[in-house]
Design a protein around this nucleic acid. Structure first.
Lengths: 140, 140
DNA sequence: TATTGTTATACTCTATAACTATA
DNA sequence: TATAGTTATAGAGTATAACAATA
């Protein structure tokens, strides 16, 4: 399992690097894509990371042209992190790529095998959740 | 899947931190445990990381008392990274913990469910391998 | 008084390039 | 001439703490 995740992370990192992205920045883009313009505060909570960290990630994404900082309409302390056209297009591609990978991995699998996999994974996940004390996982 | 790996990595990092370890350093310890005293060069290859990176990881493990640098018996350029008693004990605990986790996750699972999980994962892994061009995975 | 985001500081992991000591 | 490991330098991700502007 560890080997598999390392393998996936490395390959994902390489793929993202071709778009001048890192895993951490792509994760922020991904959440932004699903939530729309967001304050840095809310992104810090969603990504379970310090506000200072978000400042750095957004700095990077701004300088590489994926997002901009827009003034919050009612709270002058806050900024809204917002996609550029390029950022929106890239986030959409991330989602499309995820869907394509899922299809590639599962579409030729028999219903029986797929059901067995899902059932087994659900059992493992359930045990993990119990052991870790119900983490807030979002089941994406 | 991504959420799951993130979840596992975070939790693993927290657990390791209680032993003053990081994931990268524990990975080195793990390989050392399975290979015995090793040159930094060989560790760089095994971990697929630059030699300079190994210098840093070993520096950290030396200063926290897990390993020492010993002279190589025949090559005076090389050093052999070697466990301290504390390091050897810790590596053994890592392996024991891995085994315990595996037992916890699978021992109450029916043979049928377990077989379905293994079969499904094997199919997914096979497709990944085909797509990525037969990575050198070690199947641990 | 509390919250948002930044500056200041620090640590870890990672890389490439140049260099030293040895083979 | 090639190899093992280090120093030099750099960048990314992460954290806490102090601070400014605003609520």
């Amino acid at each position: 399992m560890l080997e598999l995740t390392v393998l996936l992370n490395d390959d994902m990192a390489r793929a993202l690097a071709q778009d001048s992205l890192t895993v951490a920045r792509a994760h922020l883009l991904w959440e932004l894509h699903h939530r729309g313009p967001s304050t840095q505060r809310s992104l810090a909570e969603v990504l379970a990371v310090s506000p200072r960290n978000i400042t750095g990630l957004v700095d990077g994404l701004v300088s590489t042209g994926f997002v901009t900082r827009q003034p919050h309409p009612t709270d002058r302390r806050a900024t809204l992190v917002t996609f550029t056209a390029h950022g929106a297009r890239t986030a959409q591609q991330l989602e499309t790529g995820r869907d394509q990978l899922a299809r590639f991995l599962f579409e030729d699998m028999s219903d029986r095998q797929f059901a067995g996999l899902v059932s087994g994974l659900a059992a493992v996940l359930g045990r993990l959740r119990a052991a870790l004390g119900q983490p807030t996982g979002e089941e994406r």
